[in-house]
Amino acid sequence: MDLSVYLAYDYPVLGAFWTVMWIFLWVMWLFLLFRIIVDVFRDHEMSGWLKAVWVLFLLLIPFLGVLVYVIARGKDMGKREVQHAQERQDAFNSYIRETVKDPGRAGADDLVRLSELKAKGDLSEEEFQKAKQKLLG
């Protein structure tokens, strides 16, 4: 009966290094593949048929497809990413502007300030009612 013991030196450090390196490269390649697929669908200048051809090329011959895409269209990938980030930032800024300009919210804040002034005694009841009527229309 063979009672051999497997120790850590049975799997050399260099072998572990190569394993980790190949896993890292595989993950990076998958990341690049999905990044390219996102870029294909994000490009508004490309027609639907051309997008379908690129996706088929990427799925049927993935390594060659990624290499060809990066060579042919890689330069503009960064520009499209910056453009997309700018569009998202503009949409966020317009949302913030619309939220801040909400007339119902501004009127409520003004009414709170008026009631605080009245509570401190800076406004009389008559002045408070006039200002309140003016705010409410």
Score class of each variant (00 low, 15 high):
L64E: 07
Q89E: 15
Q133Y: 03
A16R: 15
K130P: 01
E125F: 04
L50E: 15
L64D: 04
M28I: 08
V20R: 04
V68Y: 04
G15S: 14
R42W: 00
Q129C: 02
E125Q: 13
L111F: 04
K101D: 14
V20Q: 04
E87F: 03
L25Q: 09
I37E: 14
F57K: 11
T99P: 00
L56P: 01
S115H: 09
T19L: 12
L56V: 11
S94I: 07
V38D: 11
A8L: 08
K75N: 05
G107R: 13
V82G: 00
W29C: 03
Q129G: 02
L117F: 05
H44I: 05
P12A: 10
R105I: 06
W49E: 14
E125S: 11
K79F: 11
D110L: 15
G137A: 14
K79P: 01
W29M: 09
G78N: 10
M77Y: 02
K101Y: 01
L32R: 10
W54T: 03
K130F: 02
K79N: 11
H44M: 05
A72C: 07
Q86Y: 01
N93L: 10
K132Y: 01
K130Y: 03
D122G: 02
F92D: 09
A16K: 15
A72M: 12
F31H: 05
F57V: 09
P12W: 04
V82C: 00
M46K: 04
L3R: 09
M21Y: 07
A85S: 06
E126Y: 06
A8D: 13
S47L: 09
W26P: 00
G48S: 13
P62S: 05
F41C: 00
K101L: 10
F128D: 06
M46N: 02
P103A: 14
V70W: 09
F92T: 12
Y69T: 04
R113K: 15
L135C: 06
Y11I: 15
W49D: 14
A106I: 15
A91G: 08
D110W: 05
D2S: 11
